[in-house]
Amino acid sequence: MKVFNVKALLMGIMILLAAGPAAGKKLQIVTTTTDLKAIAEAVGGAYVSVNSISSGRQDPHFIDAKPSYMLKLRKADLFIRIGLELEQGWERLILEGSRNRSILLGSRGHLDASAGIRRLEVPTGAVDRSMGDVHPLGNPHYWLDPYNARIIAGTIARRLGELDPEHEAQYARSAASFSRQVDIAMFGSALQEGEDAEGLWQRRPGGNLVPGIEAQSDAGEARGWQAQMAPFRGVKVVTYHRSWSYFLERFGLVAAGELESKPGISPSPGHLKNLIETMRAQQVPIIIVASFKGDKAPNLVAAKTGATVVKVPYSVGGNDQAGDYIAMMDQLVTRISTALTRSSL
């Protein structure tokens, strides 16, 4: 008599290992940024538990590959990154260090949230480092356009559905619900119930607003981000790093330059001198700076030009008020539109 059926035991172990998350167990998600975490939580709801590597108060380009991040990833079912090489300095180290096979690049547990995003500033010619830290796949700061948050939500919902087919429909519904919240935040309460906002989003900056939404300009709290920013279309602004291209394009603001002489290169005195002249000539009213950037260069330029420095969260958790994606975008729109309203330039 066979006391021990080795084959059956091995099969059992294989099945247990392959089964993935057991029924009732939450999918463990680790995202590189808090924006992805906020969206993944909105989509995954009660079926997921989400951790972010970066805190929202730090620059996701420059993160040390700390062993504690590898521990976070050890049991993850899904890793979500911004992509477009934003995390290239540290992603591989923490993925490899985690020893978690199911989230390596190319596996189902590895998701690049940039899929489906219309990329800005994709270089058309050859790129080299004399140009500074140019991202050859395009500008990676796409989460700062609220339309892209809707795309990210859809991308995450589809992958969650693949990993956890039992709740596929719920993920799709949550993504749609999140998108609707973004639509309402963007276009305000004038958005009719059941009205598809897709057409409104497709009216690219520079085009006229839909009359119903434009009329909200004096409607107080019910106004959406679109209406709040509408008076400033075409206004020129300066930013610290080229992180704001998606936000500027969405709201029709125009970049007059950056404090950095080239992407990722510290502001040089010569460059700042030229920038100050440009800003004076073009009467640039504000300098947009992410909350983790130094104050010295922005304050110097502001003092010479009369422009206002607007320090804003650049990710969810970037300040105490930016608790979720919509609150973060609210902060951005409110602080920038307020500064533009108050500016005497």
Partner: peptide
């Protein structure tokens, strides 16, 4: 041992 504030400027 390394200390680095979260709000750091390129490290």
């Amino acid at each position: 041992l390394k200390w680095q504030p979260l709000a750091n400027d390129q490290g």
